[in-house]
């Protein structure tokens, strides 16, 4: 359903994704792993349409066989893609409730609010965080929970989680991961991660290894534990 074909991406003239091709199927869980700087976040940004990430003319990103690489991020969101950020920025004077209301123009605002509160409860997000400037003064775990909350309320068919498990403590990780498992349903998850710990809760169907912007290897969940034991260098050499 999400097809990347010959995807090459440059940022400020530096090539960071090289001819990446892969098809993500509906309902599956994918894990993308790779050393720091291998292009994992860039891949996520490119799929979402960050304006600084320039794709080559041969590159194609399509969703359900329709090109989306030439449309704005909000349109891509409208077609069913969500990206949870690795380091979400803080937004002064903007609350998550307000953001979710504005991002759901076709839904009853009251219903959005109730759902937000309900999911926040499940994620053990304090009420105070819902009415405060988004991410301002929030801990790592709180930020990732707020990202998860937005993912759930906006409810897109493809959800990309960029290091949702980084900078969170054990309890927060459990809260996030069990929440994601519970609400998975028929959605596609793409998890970008360095660790296996979240994979205890979310069993991947495929593991993709990205090194230096290259898709070096694709395997099943065993590949993830091998990497943890042996490291990337040994694996690809």
């Amino acid at each position: 359903m999400l097809d990347l074909k010959n995807l090459s991406v440059t940022v400020e003239k530096r090539k960071i994704i090289k001819n990446f091709s892969y098809s993500f199927k509906p309902g599956k869980i994918y894990v993308i792993m790779g050393p720091n700087g291998s292009g994992k976040s860039s891949l996520a940004y490119s799929i979402m349409g960050h304006p600084s990430y320039k794709i080559s003319t041969k590159s194609r990103i399509s969703l359900d066989k329709k090109r989306i690489d030439n449309i704005a991020p909000e349109k891509r969101s409208g077609k069913g893609i969500f990206l949870s950020f690795q380091s979400p920025l803080s937004l002064s004077g903007v609350t998550v409730r307000e953001l979710l209301r504005l991002a759901s123009p076709n839904r009853d605002p009251l219903e959005v609010r109730q759902q937000t509160d309900k999911y926040a409860d499940e994620l053990k997000i304090s009420k105070e965080l819902l009415t405060r400037s988004l991410n301002e003064g929030a801990s790592g775990g709180e930020k990732k929970k707020l990202e998860t909350l937005q993912a759930a309320v906006l409810d897109k068919k493809i959800m990309i989680f960029d290091e949702i498990d980084t900078g969170v403590d054990v309890d927060a990780l459990r809260a996030i991961a069990t929440f994601l498992r519970k609400h998975k349903k028929n959605k596609t998850y793409i998890l970008i991660t360095h660790y296996n710990r979240i994979l205890k809760y979310l069993k991947p169907d495929k593991v993709l290894i990205l090194i230096d912007g290259d898709l070096k290897k694709v395997g099943d969940k065993k590949l993830a534990s091998q990497i943890e034991k042996k490291g990337y260098l040994k694996l690809v050499s």
Partner: peptide, 20 residues
Amino acid sequence: FYLTSRGLSRADAEGLLVNG
């Protein structure tokens, strides 16, 4: 980019940030 990735148009995103 963060706000538009959540589905807000650019103008709405700007308005929201300025109001914030």
